[in-house]
Structure formats: structure tokens, C-alpha cells
């Protein structure tokens, strides 16, 4: 069993307020694990907020229930991992490959940014829930 040194869990309506709540959770998480260096904290926080924002902006409800956002973040000795989920959501619509928009485009950079920030991104769909698993191998100082 891999040792979990610290973790945070959020679940709530996929709305704007959730983004600030998740960001506050991450800020407090880093206080528990000061050995995680600034670069890892910064990159991982950015990737998680990008993914959560993607759900708040784009996830569509599969039925009558509103979409909920879930973010579970764990810190292991050499691994940062987040499971960012859209509950009660339709499968994602459109291409899931990162694109490179024109330089004057005002959107479309999120996915490429996430891929640049973490070591792996995987997607799972199970029981009506879309989950992006973000993993970053923690660099040692």
C-alpha cells in the first residue's frame, strides 16, 4: 500500500464557487507537505484548476440531476495525484486531443496546458462519471 502523506477531497455543484473552494483546498494541502517544492505545487495546482474549470464550463448533465464536481488530491512520497470528476455528466463531447489555437484565440489552450503540466493524464468513464486522473511525479530537491 502506497503511503498517502496528505490529501484533500471536494465535492459540490459544478459552479464557479467550486473553483475557489478547490483552489483554497490546494493552498491548504501544500501547508501540510512543505517538502513538495514550489515548482511542483505551482504546476500541479494549475493543472487541477484547469481540469476543474473545464468541467464547470463544459460538462453537460446526463439526466435531470445537475452535474457535480469532485476533486480528490493525494500526495505520496514521490507522486502528486488528482482525480477530477464530473458526476451525473454526459460523456465528454468533441475531441479530447490538445490543440494549438491561433495566437489571438481567446480559448482552447486548457488541454495542452494540462498535458504540459503533469506527467500523465488519463480519462475514465464509469457509472455516469467522467474522471480525469492527473499525475505528476514529484521532483526531489
Amino acid at each position: 500500500m502506497t503511503e498517502v502523506l496528505a490529501s484533500r477531497s471536494f465535492r459540490g455543484a459544478a459552479a464557479e464557487d467550486a473553483i475557489e473552494a478547490v483552489h483554497n483546498d490546494l493552498d491548504s494541502l501544500w501547508l501540510d507537505v512543505p517538502f513538495v517544492n514550489d515548482m511542483d505545487q505551482m504546476t500541479f495546482t494549475t493543472a487541477v484548476i484547469e481540469s476543474a474549470s473545464n468541467i464547470v464550463q463544459h460538462a453537460q448533465p446526463a439526466g435531470e440531476r445537475d452535474v457535480e464536481l469532485g476533486v480528490e488530491t493525494t500526495v505520496q512520497p514521490a507522486l502528486l495525484q488528482a482525480r477530477v470528476s464530473a458526476y451525473y455528466a454526459k460523456p465528454p463531447f468533441g475531441p479530447m486531443e490538445a490543440s494549438t489555437p491561433d495566437e489571438d484565440a481567446e480559448s482552447g489552450r486548457g488541454l495542452a496546458l494540462i498535458e504540459a503540466l503533469v506527467t500523465t493524464v488519463t480519462f475514465e468513464r464509469q457509472d455516469g462519471t467522467n474522471t480525469w486522473v492527473l499525475s505528476r511525479t514529484s521532483s526531489q530537491d
Binding site: H23, T45, T46, I49, E50, S53, D104, A105, E106, S107, R109, G110, L113
Partner: peptide, 12 residues
């Protein structure tokens, strides 16, 4: 902190 939405706003 700035994410891709914030970057998009600066470009706008």
C-alpha cells in the same frame, strides 16, 4: 495565479 481563462481574457 492565472489559468487559460485568465490568459484568454488578457488576449481579449
Amino acid at each position: 495565479f492565472m489559468d487559460s481563462s485568465g490568459l484568454g481574457a488578457l488576449i481579449g
